[in-house]
């Protein structure tokens, strides 16, 4: 046991020394202060993120990070969402066949009283907070192409609302209002499909019209003359970025709520269902 700990310590000290030495020999590109400029690649992004002078070479969004996340490197983000999706599916697979539905009906009468959840002050405040949180999170998500924020940021902020209701009241409170596993899974799938279809929209256009087009294309390119309109009624919507943000907002909010509903399934129920299960 002690040998193992000593081994861990020694290797960690080596790691620290290596990383420090690497940093002090400017392996991160700079030492001791950051670079005085940005790397060339970054200047490409900064220069072309919203540059109407080069209509074939811009993402049409003032927000360079969102532009990179959804346009320049959209593939990463699709699969980042896929990782989150697969994590939720993995959790669902661990919880397969277990649902709160039966408990929710038996708890119909017992949980509305003053005995459960936090105090009445917290409950009243949570009721008032819910629409405010949704308003703020929607603002964060829908302005993702203009100001910091975006689908994930907004969606995770929106998930505070059901989470607070879950913690302050109880999970049965949510279930009685129709926020249960299946609607949340549907919401999540709808969001993911929105992302997916937006990513492929231009390719379909290209296939129909017979011109070249790329997967994840947003604005027209030199060799791919179709794109999603960047302006709608003279308002900047940055083409696909708005659609991506909206879809991701729904998907993330649904996903988080789903995770927390799954986490709040009582242990007795799970144990009673898992015990005596057949396996290979």
């Amino acid at each position: 046991m002690n040998v193992k700990k000593a081994l861990i310590l020694v290797s960690l000290i080596i790691l620290v020394l290596t990383l420090s030495a690497a940093f002090t020999s400017s392996a991160l590109g700079h030492y001791p202060l950051p670079l005085s400029g940005v790397r060339w690649l970054a200047s490409w992004y900064l220069y072309t993120t919203l540059n109407p002078q080069y209509p074939k070479f811009t993402a049409m969004s003032p927000e360079a990070v969102t532009a990179i996340v959804w346009d320049y490197r959209g593939l990463d983000t699709l699969f980042e969402t896929a990782v989150f999706f697969l994590a939720i599916v993995g959790a669902l697979a661990l919880m397969r066949g277990i649902s709160l539905k039966s408990l929710a009906e038996s708890n119909e009468t017992t949980t509305e009283g003053a005995g459960s959840g936090l105090s009445l002050i917290s409950k009243t405040a949570a009721k008032l907070l819910t629409p405010l949180i949704i308003a703020v999170s929607a603002s964060i998500a829908l302005h993702g192409h203009l100001t910091p924020g975006g689908g994930f940021q907004g969606g995770s902020a929106a998930a505070v609302a059901p989470l607070l209701l879950l913690v302050i009241f109880s999970v049965y409170f949510l279930l009685r209002r129709g926020i249960s596993e299946k609607p949340m899974l549907t919401l999540r799938t709808a969001g993911l499909l929105g992302i997916y279809l937006t990513a492929l929209a231009v390719v379909f256009t290209g296939l129909v019209t017979g011109v070249n087009a790329y997967v994840f294309q947003n604005q027209p390119k030199f060799d791919a003359p179709v794109g999603i309109p960047a302006y709608l009624f003279n308002t900047l919507v940055s083409g696909s970025l708005f659609l991506f943000n909206l879809s991701e907002y729904l998907a993330v909010a649904g996903g988080f709520t789903l995770v927390f509903i799954l986490l709040s399934i009582p242990e007795e129920l799970v144990m009673s269902l898992i015990r005596g299960e057949e396996h290979e």
């Binding site: 629409p131 949704i134 308003a135 703020v136 603002s139 302005h143």
Partner: peptide, 13 residues
């Protein structure tokens, strides 16, 4: 609720 949310949204934006 509409008024509450709308006002919050516009002020926040």
């Amino acid at each position: 609720v509409f008024i509450l949310v709308f006002v919050t949204y516009v002020i926040y934006s």
